[in-house]
């Protein structure tokens, strides 16, 4: 046994509900007009929601369709609706979300269901392009590196949003996307804001025109559903607020 140090205050947690042996899992099967199907999945320690889905597909129902790739929260392909909330499933532990050993797993909201847990992501990615999400280079590879001091405020704005993994969790969480299918949505606008603040980018005011207007940043209600759910802890709401300011100034200066 280790010597007990006085500063070691760790105690075994008092376990109220011992871990159940089985999970009662309901998974969406079929397209938009599908239904939930029930499965019993063995409960394991440190099990993620993606582990549960994978178990169902490998052991119980090989016809189940779902997406994943990296399993470590980098690729953004595994997002689903877990007990009513959009989440990245590879990094969501069952212990954090299962209510009384129950899990309900559905496809993401606001995107057309292809089959089971897979949704058609085209709208989501098309909107990234529509919002001017592509970097427009102003130099070539033979030029010197751009020198941007770490203290540059624009660099801070860009840094704050740059870690987006394109998982569409925010897009599924946003009510304005649900009400207005044309709305560009939090991820695309967040991406645009990082580029508006990128000193190396050459698109300038044209990008502001792309994100202005009724379907752009002005439609956001600033209620922060996106940042509440973003697994990377980003704040598209803050990015959109920045775009609103930039777009307003551009409109007043007749630069849109």
């Amino acid at each position: 046994m280790h010597k007990e140090h006085p500063w070691n205050t760790f105690k075994e947690p008092f376990i109220l509900n011992p871990m159940p042996k089985m999970l009662a899992v309901k998974i969406w099967r079929g397209g938009e007009d599908g239904r939930f199907q029930s499965y019993d999945v063995p409960r394991l320690e440190n099990q993620t929601v993606l582990d549960v889905v994978t178990y169902v597909q490998r052991k119980l129902d090989p016809g189940l369709s779902y997406r994943f790739a990296c399993r470590v929260g980098m690729c953004g392909s595994c997002a689903m609706t877990v007990n009513g909330t959009p989440r990245w499933t590879c990094r969501t532990h069952v212990s954090r979300v299962a209510e009384d050993g129950q899990l309900q797993i559905a496809p993401l909201r606001n995107l057309p269901v292809i089959k089971d847990l897979t949704v058609d992501m085209r709208d989501f990615f098309d909107k990234l392009a529509k919002a001017g999400g592509a970097f427009q280079a102003t130099k070539t590879r033979t030029d010197d590196f751009a020198k941007i001091p770490p203290s540059d405020p624009r660099r801070h704005h860009a840094d704050a949003g740059i870690e987006c993994i394109g998982c569409a969790v925010c897009y599924a969480a946003c009510d304005v996307v649900a009400w207005k299918p044309g709305y560009l949505g939090p991820a695309a606008l967040n991406r645009a804001w990082t580029l508006v603040n990128d000193a190396r980018d050459g698109m300038g005011d044209k990008r502001l025109s792309m994100v202005a207007g009724d379907d752009g940043c002005l439609a956001c209600h600033s209620q922060q559903g996106c940042q509440e759910h973003c697994p990377m802890g980003l704040s598209p709401t803050a990015a959109i607020a920045g775009l609103k300011r930039a777009v307003s100034v551009a409109a007043l200066k007749s630069k849109l």
């Binding site: 025109s209 002005l218 409109a251 007043l252 849109l256």
Partner: peptide, 15 residues
């Protein structure tokens, strides 16, 4: 109605 008018309407509402 283009995005310039839409943006001006939005601004007019804030002001």
């Amino acid at each position: 109605m283009n995005e310039v008018v839409q943006t001006r309407l939005w601004l007019a509402q804030r002001i």
